[in-house]
Nucleic acid binder design. Structure first.
Length: 350
DNA sequence: AATCGGTCCAACCGCATCATC
DNA sequence: GGATGATGCGGTTGGACCGAT
């Protein structure tokens, strides 16, 4: 008995997300944490199905996502992991915490698959067939390989978890590929044994912040303040996040350096003087034009609009939402974050 | 300048799996 | 243990973009 698709309901909007929809979704998630997606459309007034909201968050809005070109290192990681895991993009993505499974899948389909085929033309590649499917272990069934892979991942996570106390400050240069399963900085009293797909990105941002804290750049500090408080807010309100412990640790650290940080929803609409009017007018016009939002959505919009009119510099997320070419700063910083060696990352698995 | 074909990627769809009752 | 609903995953698609002609 099939269930009707969630998007078959009358009035559900499809297609590309608008900046204002992004803002509403991000604001809501900042307040309530990710999860319970079914309630998101009703509570925000977004005319989107829960699936669409979750996808938008996980693939695009979630903090810590690295955009832009894949590095050689990432490419090699994907090639290795695809050969090992097959098209299990979510599993592969767990080793590349800053990339989404969708990104990796797209990159594979558009770049690597062709590359593999090309290479196959030159020399017979052993790991990937013409469909890009793994066949390094042709005798094993899919489930057997999956099981073996999961065991490997669990072993890796366990070994990393056990090594935590000895090496608590290994990031950013020794970040392990399976950080989704292993939360390096959780204090012993937190609920860190519950895996969270979002933990790694929070950790990345924490590390990013630490890097930026060290630099004298004031705008970077403002930015870090914004995103940092943003993540703290999510974790503490969500309550179920596995990275809660890590957050509280870094939050304390952050509080000492930035006692005047604000909640995310305030920062989201903070603008530099130069860009403020443009963004304000844009928001205002889209707001006025947007008749598809329900009362809840409009209330959120009102709130954001009020916040917007209060001042302060442009935040990364806000830039991210509104501008196309912002990826450089974000990209560069995230580049610093990962910085892990392929040999180190994969030696345990191959 | 217009058209065409290829590329890229965000988003959708359907199915699988998990969780709850 | 089965029914139902929620969430996750991987395949696919639609359209924007860009270079070639």
């Amino acid at each position: 008995m099939g269930r009707p698709p969630c998007c078959e309901k009358y009035g559900i909007k499809k297609g590309p997300w608008t900046p204002e929809e992004d803002i509403i979704l991000v604001s809501y998630i900042q307040q309530h944490g990710p999860g319970n997606w079914r309630s998101v459309p009703t509570n925000t007034g977004l005319m989107r199905c829960s699936k669409s909201c979750r996808l938008r968050w996980t693939n695009y809005l979630r903090p810590g996502i690295k955009r832009g070109n894949f590095t050689d290192h990432e490419e090699k990681m994907i090639l290795h992991l695809q050969a090992l895991l097959g098209n299990r993009w979510a599993a592969i993505a767990s080793y590349l915490p800053q990339r989404t499974d969708n990104d990796i899948k797209n990159y594979w389909n558009t770049h690597l698959k062709k590359k593999m085929n090309k290479d196959q033309g030159n020399d017979n590649h052993e790991d990937v067939d013409s469909e890009g499917k793994a066949r390094s272990q042709p005798l094993k069934g899919q489930w057997e390989r999956r099981l073996q892979t999961d065991i490997q991942m669990a072993k890796q996570a366990l070994s990393e978890a056990l090594s935590l106390p000895q090496n608590p400050t290994t990031f950013p240069h020794e970040m392990k590929p399976s950080s989704s399963f292993c939360h390096e900085n959780h204090p012993p009293n937190s609920h860190f044994n519950i895996p969270s797909p979002y933990a790694s990105s929070y950790e990345n941002i924490s590390r990013l912040m630490e890097n930026w804290m060290k630099t004298p750049n004031s705008s970077a500090e403002t930015l870090s303040s914004s995103i940092f408080s943003n993540n703290m807010h999510v974790t503490t309100t969500a309550g179920s996040s596995s990275s809660e412990g890590a957050q509280s640790t870094t939050q304390d650290h952050h509080h000492h350096q930035h006692p005047h940080h604000h909640a995310f929803e305030s920062n989201l609409f903070n603008f530099s003087n130069s860009s403020k009017s443009d963004h304000a007018s844009r928001i205002r016009s889209t707001y006025e034009e947007n008749s598809s939002l329900t009362k809840e959505g409009l209330d959120l919009f009102h709130q954001e609009k009020r916040n917007m009119e209060t001042n302060v510099p442009l935040t990364l997320l806000e830039k991210w939402l509104f501008e196309d070419g912002v990826t450089t700063t974000h990209h560069e910083c995230n580049e610093d974050l990962i910085n892990m060696s392929l040999e180190e990352s994969t030696s345990d698995f191959f």
